[in-house]
Amino acid sequence: MTARVLALHGGLIAVLLALHFLLPAYHHGNLARVMVLACYAIGYNVLFGYTGLLSLGHAMFFAAGMYGMGLPLHFLGIGAELAFLAGLLSAAALALVVGLLALRTAGVAFMIVTLMFSEAVYLTILLAGKWTRGDEGVVLERAERVFFGLDLSDPDIRYLAALALFALCLFLTLWLVRQPAGRVLIAIRENDERARLLGYDIFRHKLAAVVISGTISGAAGAAYGLLFGYVGATFAEVQYSIFPLLWVLLGGAGTIIGPFFGVLFMFYLIDLSSGITSAYMLIAGIALVLLTLFAPQGLAGELRRRRMRWLP
């Protein structure tokens, strides 16, 4: 890894660590949320930005992580550590099944198929209302949210835990896209027929990308539930499939650092607009249209195109 790549991404983590000591409580809490959601965006970006597969159903992976963690934790009392692992495994298993089916299609059909599977997962959560309590959701008690002795309901610990997860996701994907297999994903995005005729098994690489992407998204969902003490069906709704697409488009698809800035920007845009109107999804809608029209590369993508060719 080149020094400037390391400096840029390490620098971001350092700045976020410094902000832990500097930010007032309100923004401190917001940034913790932004970092967890940025993990979700990073997971989405592995599939959309690096492999070129546009999913409209990633909420199912976020929700699989969240419920796979939350339900056993709340009803079986298996402890936060095991519950987090259960969340990861749920998301990975779902991603494997969805990948095996959905990857038989491509393009628009892939988008619709993922949308439909995600909708089915959301409806299943509603159907199992006896345990999930549907839209109302399950509140996780403070005592349940102790992770290796750390009380995740404490704002300081929560922030640092979010930062740790974010740093892990950031460097994991940075490492991944520089691996031979990661380079193949990019090759598939650019020209999958050519990649196939260089002897790469496209289906297996795409499937791996779906599983990695789904698992990272699930990790974000599980962490979100643990850190903020709530597991609800809202997070499985179609909006939560659209959000990561929006974040990644805004921040820059196929960049490591872009998703974080996409989440940050969108989070505060919606936060500021909520003072004016309750129709906050209007902002999302306008942003989607403007981005597809005028800046399909996103923030970091434009930066890479104009001056930083080395940006991973």
Binding site: A187, E190, N191, R194, L197, G199, Y200
Partner: peptide, 24 residues
Amino acid sequence: LPAHARVALGMAYTFQITSVFARL
């Protein structure tokens, strides 16, 4: 055998219409 497996056996193919990774 699928195409990628044939390539793995030692066959290579160059396209009639240039097909490279234009942005890499």
